[in-house]
């Protein structure tokens, strides 16, 4: 039952509640860095990684430091913790795993002001998840972000090769394509519920 719940949270995050395509969080990197496949996947992996770290740090802070008395400090504390964490991760990666830093490094500072990371940290708290559930939720959301980025990078590479009217070139055609991809994700609604019998 426990595993089933975790799996449900994970799969819901990936498909049904996809942050980019259904909740409109993290649109900036989704539109900005999805031009090339390798950049898109790099960004997706970096975001997943930071989401996991951020949840691992913010959940205990919320539970043991903020509690109910200081709950009004949540927004300030979370954004500062995430900003500091991103810097910290960057320094650690640079020092110990330079290869990974080289591939993810450029994306890390961008993630500080990514609303998907702050969003998932806050949503985990408002949904009342336990620590393990929060981690799975973050992992699901991160993978969902990665999936959306990678899928959309493919879509965009096709768009680049198509002649389109001048007025819709650039951002408009990208947004319209995103709309269609988002529509496709509607198909997943209910699938997870039936699959796990919940």
């Amino acid at each position: 039952m426990e595993i089933k719940t975790l799996l449900y949270i994970l799969l819901t995050g990936v498909f049904v509640n996809n942050y980019v395509l259904q909740k409109f969080l993290g649109i900036c990197p989704f539109l900005g860095v999805s031009k090339k496949f390798d950049q898109a996947s790099g960004m997706g992996i970096a975001v997943t990684f930071v989401m996991l770290c951020a949840t691992a740090v913010t959940w205990p802070i919320n539970e043991y430091v903020l509690g109910t008395d200081l709950a009004y400090l949540q927004t300030i504390v979370f954004i500062l913790v995430i900003a500091a964490l991103v810097q910290f991760v960057e320094i650690v990666l640079k020092r110990f795993i330079p290869a990974l830093h080289k591939s993810l490094g450029v994306y890390l500072p961008l993630i500080t002001t990514n609303c998907a990371v702050l969003g998932v940290a806050i949503n985990n708290i408002t949904d009342g998840y336990s620590f393990l559930e929060s981690m799975f939720s973050s992992l699901g959301v991160g993978i969902g972000f990665l999936l959306a980025m990678v899928l959309f990078a493919g879509v965009r590479s096709r768009i680049e090769n198509c002649p389109s009217p001048k007025a819709i070139q650039g951002l408009p055609i990208t947004l319209i394509a995103a709309s269609i991809v988002s529509l496709a994700f509607f198909g997943f609604a209910g699938v997870i519920d039936n699959l796990l019998g919940m």
């Binding site: 909740k23 650039g170 951002l171 947004l175 319209i176 988002s182």
Partner: peptide, 29 residues
């Protein structure tokens, strides 16, 4: 959700079309 992307895309396209063309109005990336 899909409607949000669609309307935003069309709105920007319309502004691209009817917007001021004097000078080099940069293509919206």
């Amino acid at each position: 959700a899909p409607g949000g992307f669609l309307v935003f895309g069309i709105l920007i396209a319309v502004i691209n079309k009817i917007g001021p063309k004097k000078g080099a109005q940069k293509r919206k990336e």
